[in-house]
Computed example of a mutant assay.
Amino acid sequence: MKSYICTVCGYVYSEEQGDPDNGIAAGTLWADVPEDFLCPLCGVGKDMFEEQ
């Protein structure tokens, strides 16, 4: 599984862990994360994340 990092604040989205606090179950692939996902730390969109 892959991880993606917010290029603005450094928050890391891990496909393995998901983001259960924001309704994204563990094991959710980045491609399956909704397009309107916002970084839980700084609020930028999914387009500001890069594969780590």
Rank of each mutant, 00 (worst) to 15 (best):
Gln52Gly: 11
Val44Thr: 15
Lys2Glu: 09
Asp36Glu: 09
Leu41Thr: 11
Cys39Val: 12
Leu38Gly: 05
Cys6Arg: 09
Gln52Met: 14
Met1Glu: 12
Tyr13Glu: 10
Val12Ile: 13
Tyr11Trp: 14
Asp32Ala: 14
Pro34Arg: 04
Met48Asp: 06
Met1Gln: 11
Gly45Met: 12
Leu38Ile: 11
Glu16Trp: 07
Pro20Arg: 10
Tyr4Phe: 15
Pro20Met: 08
Gly27Arg: 03
Gly10Pro: 13
Leu38Thr: 07
Gly45Asn: 14
Ala25Asn: 01
Val33Ala: 05
Phe49Thr: 02
Glu35Asn: 14
Glu35Asp: 14
Ile24Asp: 03
Thr28Val: 01
Leu29Gly: 08
Asp21Asn: 09
Gln17Ala: 07
Gly10Ser: 11
Cys39Asp: 04
Ser3Pro: 05
Glu15Lys: 08
Ser14Pro: 12
Met48Glu: 12
Leu38Phe: 09
Gly27Glu: 04
Val44Leu: 05
Glu51Lys: 15
Phe37His: 14
Leu29Pro: 07
Ser14Lys: 00
Pro40Met: 01
Glu50Ala: 10
Ser3Met: 14
Thr7Gln: 13
Thr7Arg: 13
Asp32Asn: 14
Asn22Leu: 05
Leu38Val: 08
Asp47Met: 07
Ile24Pro: 01
Leu38Glu: 06
Ser14Phe: 03
Thr7Leu: 13
Phe49Ser: 04
Thr7Glu: 13
Cys9Trp: 00
Phe49Cys: 08
Met1Phe: 01
Ile5Pro: 00
Cys39Met: 15
Leu38Lys: 11
Asp21Gln: 04
Trp30Gly: 07
Val44Lys: 07
Tyr4His: 15
Gln52Leu: 15
Pro34Leu: 08
Asp21Gly: 11
Thr7Asn: 10
Leu29Ala: 12
Ile24Asn: 02
Lys2Gln: 05
Cys39Trp: 12
Ala25His: 00
Met1Leu: 09
Cys39Ala: 14
Thr7Val: 11
Asp36Cys: 09
Cys9Ser: 13
Val8Arg: 04
Val8Tyr: 07
Ala25Cys: 03
Tyr13Ile: 04
Val12Asn: 00
Trp30Gln: 05
Lys2Leu: 10
Phe37Cys: 09
Asp21Leu: 12
Val8Thr: 15
Phe49Asn: 01
Leu29Thr: 07
Phe37Ser: 11
Cys42Met: 15
Cys42Glu: 06
Asp21Ile: 04
Ile5Ala: 12
Ser14Arg: 03
Asp36Tyr: 07
Glu16Leu: 06
Asp47Arg: 08
Gly45Glu: 13
Gln17Arg: 09
Ile5Lys: 07
Pro34Asn: 09
Pro20Phe: 01
Ala31Arg: 03
Pro20Gln: 06
